[in-house]
Write a protein that binds this DNA or RNA. Structure first.
Lengths: 336, 336
DNA sequence: AAAGAATAAAATACCGATAAAATTAATATA
DNA sequence: TATATTAATTTTATCGGTATTTTATTCTTT
């Protein structure tokens, strides 16, 4: 069964296409369509299975009520949380979201931008997976509004961005551990390239220094991955300066760290205290429950959508928002 | 900067729109465009920031190379795993995916169908959140191919579906527990309405009966939620027939069950063995590691996309696939 | 009653792409 | 040389909507 169109309805209702268009898009009054005609058209429309083509509408109107979301991986709880909130919020505001999962690959990201541009999305939200590549240039050239989420760029003054105040999060983590008497505190970072990681490391280093803990143990991981967390933790545990507490910079690194600690026969928090970034549903169900620095996922998503829609509406000035994280105290940190 | 179109390029290259169209869509040979013209057009196109409008293309060609994915919640690891695989596979095959998160609400689901239909997706993959509502009728009327994933309908012969062999999964779970000497085995189910849940319960009951375990303890939960798992487990633990083993029918129910058991001062698996449905990254990092019936998420996703593309290509007959689950033995089941 | 205003609806143009039909120019064949 | 072929490209129609312009009536108003 072929779908109805304005034309097929117009034929059945014995009137012109434009009349049908006006009636069905609620502009009958403005164009003073007679009550009789309105009734007739609506009657016919109800019986038909008419679904307006947003392709045609979008082509004609130059907007699609659609936004694109480029995200590194919907399979990571942190990102799926962001995706979920963004999709919901966009829907609330009348926008459909096209999700592109870049799988942390710049190539996929670049392709993703092309797809979104070609689909004429009204705006783009992106969690960049790496550097500010040429693909970003294309978005700028296409004059499509964009807001960067979570990760951002050094010189990223071109677009608004919304992120956690990662520096402050790290400060809070160190302060919490110091307040619990820890002095030998290590830090396992994620992607070296990611600004989020760099800011956290900076917060960690500054705060260690502030407390006169110059002997801070800074282990360089290279990825926000379980494997990385596992490997780096093993190095720490077997090294000369085994710490009493570890700050891990993501929920994935945490899982690897926990595995390494458990396998070494040590116990959290009795032998090693641990504090993670990113809250996670399951942190409540691990033994012990994991203390962490929670990112304001919901707020980030809401603000990102809000800023994007402002840009779509024509607003030109960019905002750089750092939203405050929260310390969630559970059972993985113990006083020494 | 306004985007280039075929027209703007045609002007610069001093030729007609159709010539440009042919060159840029790689049909120069077929329409024997001269080498000189091809070169000229490509030169101009390279310098411009042309992105073809998929709206126009879609409108004209009657296809959009886009599929829709309706899913209950990208924030649930099981579903986000499915979403992730589907998005990746669709992309491999040249399709873009529009994800609609229904948040387990039939209203959102219905709206989602409308959006997808209006956007003229070539096909739809859906994990239904409830009953076969009128919204499904609309999809059928619109003659848009659809494949149902994971959950399916009783009389669902209309569409192909791909799901885990949930019955078999439950059988495997009971057999594993019986092999470990358990006889007092309880089962906490999820949504009563979901076919997946019903099949698992059926598998559980049949197998209990087969082993002569008539005294099976069947607890009715009503949702695939942590809260449900927690509440029902508490009832079980405090009831007269406290089981030695529990089968929980989803990863969320598991988290609630673990919390309840731990809070009651009992230990897994010493006091109670537990086996879950759905494998989950974190099952490896809980204490103890959780034994489970793993669904073939990747295979389900691949087959679903494959079937959908076949339907899009014109294939009419429907397939009903039940893919085999796997038993993942970890540490949460102990012989009695 | 005739000119002007208001009402109701239809006709047309357009968005940007593709496909089919038409046109022109160059070349081959009878 | 007249005619048929082939090559190279342009013109036109179309997809399904919305916005603008035009047309045909009916109602005022002096």
């Amino acid at each position: 069964m072929a779908l109805d169109t304005l034309a097929s309805i117009a034929e059945k209702a014995q009137c012109s296409v434009s009349t049908v268009s006006r009636v069905l898009s609620g502009k009958a009054d403005r164009y003073r369509i007679s009550e009789a005609t309105v009734a007739r058209v609506q009657e016919v429309a109800k019986l038909s299975n008419y679904t307006p083509s947003l392709l045609a509408k979008g082509l004609r109107e130059g907007k699609t009520d659609t936004i694109g979301l480029l995200i590194p991986s919907v399979d990571d709880t942190f990102f799926s949380g962001i995706a979920s909130s963004i999709i919901a919020e966009a829907r609330n505001l009348g926008y459909t979201t096209i999700v592109v999962d870049t799988q942390e690959s710049e190539e996929n990201e670049s392709e993703g931008f092309s797809t979104l541009l070609a689909r004429k999305v009204d705006g783009i939200l992106t969690v960049p997976c790496g550097r500010e590549t040429k693909a970003f240039e294309r978005v700028a050239n296409a004059d499509v509004p964009m807001v960067v989420v979570d990760r951002y760029f050094e010189k990223g003054a071109r677009w608004s961005f919304v992120t956690t105040d990662n520096y402050k999060g790290a400060v809070m983590a160190v302060e919490h551990l110091v307040a619990n008497g820890h002095r030998r505190i290590a830090c396992i970072q994620g992607s070296l390239g990611a600004m989020t990681s760099r800011e956290r490391v900076r917060g960690y280093e500054d705060t260690m220094r502030r407390f006169g803990l110059e002997e801070h143990i800074h282990v360089s991981g290279d990825k926000f991955s379980i494997q990385n967390g596992y490997a780096e933790t093993n190095l720490l545990l077997n090294g000369p300066d085994c710490p009493t507490a570890i700050i891990v910079l993501s929920n994935k690194i945490l899982l690897g760290a926990v595995k390494a600690i458990t396998e070494s026969g040590r116990h959290i928090p009795d032998d090693v205290s641990i504090i993670s970034f990113d809250d996670n549903l399951i942190f409540n169900y691990m033994t012990p429950r994991i203390t962490c620095i929670a990112q304001p996922v919901q707020e980030i998503s809401l603000m990102a959508v809000k800023l994007l829609l402002k840009n779509i509406a024509g607003e030109k000035n960019v905002s750089h928002l750092f939203l405050p994280p929260g310390l969630v105290v559970r059972d993985s940190v113990k006083p020494v």
